[in-house]
């Protein structure tokens, strides 16, 4: 099962990026564990770099139109938008897992957006901050925003989309308090940001390769 080859990153670079995100979501899991006071496991089984349209089609095909997303803009060495996307039912699950079972459905519904924004912030922030940290760059992030849309429009929000816009598309598995929740992280970046990212990832690889030689 060889992963599809992205034109932009070579195999090793993609492996490295997957690893970076894995570090990020592991940090996020640790933060979530503290938040919910229970077992949280996050993993990223796969990563793809694809065009907007295909990314949208992918979500649409797998999840249909009932989606909820937390969006944050990021800027710095590389910039773009990061989205944490769930099937709408899964989003609610996550809220319940985070807020606890005692809440009535009404209470849960009232707090849903807030809880989602908070959880999304933890995950996206951990992810991106960790990545930036690992890449030895700084990164700023906007406040989270909750969106409810179909897959197709979700990725094509905001200002007129540059045609060459690509999506770093990650599939993540959550296991929160023994609930299985699935979601996606989509990082929408333009080509120049991706090229910067590629360069930084290259440097990261070099550093990792030095790991034991210092030891």
């Amino acid at each position: 099962m060889t992963p599809r080859v992205s034109p932009l990153l070579n195999d090793l670079e993609r492996d490295a990026l997957t690893e970076l995100v894995n570090i990020g979501v592991s940090r996020a899991a640790a933060s979530l564990r503290k938040m919910v006071g229970g077992e949280v496991l996050l993993s990223v089984p796969s990563l793809e770099i694809i065009g907007h349209r295909r990314a949208a089609a992918l979500i649409q095909e797998r999840e249909g139109d009932e989606l909820v997303a937390v969006r944050q803009e990021f800027g710095g060495a590389f910039q773009g938008r990061a989205l944490l996307i769930f099937p709408r039912a899964n989003g609610m699950e996550l809220v319940r897992a985070v807020l606890g079972e005692e809440l009535t459905p009404a209470e849960a519904a009232a707090m849903e957006d807030e809880a989602l924004a908070e959880t999304g912030n933890v995950i996206l922030n951990s992810c991106l901050a960790t990545m930036a940290n690992m890449l030895e760059r700084s990164l700023t992030m906007s406040l989270p925003e909750v969106l409810r849309r179909g897959g197709l429009s979700l990725l094509q929000t905001a200002e007129p989309v540059e045609d060459e816009g690509l999506v770093l598309f990650l599939y993540i598995n959550f296991s929160v308090q023994n609930r299985s929740i699935r979601g996606y992280i989509a990082m929408v970046m333009d080509l120049s940001s991706l090229e910067t990212l590629k360069r930084l990832v290259g440097e990261f690889i070099d550093r990792v390769m030095q790991d034991d030689i210092e030891a």
């Binding site: 492996d15 592991s26 993993s43 990792v208 390769m209 790991d211």
Partner: peptide, 14 residues
């Protein structure tokens, strides 16, 4: 490849 994966673990991946 494996150095990368281990590198990830050493840096916090689970």
């Amino acid at each position: 490849r494996i150095r990368l994966a281990v590198g990830g673990i050493l840096r916090g991946a689970e």
